[in-house]
Amino acid sequence: MEPKSTIVRLDNRGLSPPEPMMRILGALETLDTDGVLIAQMDREPIFLFAELHDRGYRYTCDPDGSGGYVLEVTRQ
């Protein structure tokens, strides 16, 4: 049985830029190799995507159905 990967959850709703992006990048610093970061966002963090790509992360960002977005980040 494989060990469960760590899931880090962030609620970035209601925060002003650049706090959501800073919280995500800060949390990724301590994320396990097989960990997953899931962040609730007010908007699609389009300026974060290139940063994640450059740092070697994979991600998805989809509407959460209530006007916000859910960002999921893992290591490549």
Partner: peptide
């Protein structure tokens, strides 16, 4: 409407 730099509301 989501074209804002901040809170979705």
């Amino acid at each position: 409407a989501n074209a804002v730099i901040g809170d979705a509301s």
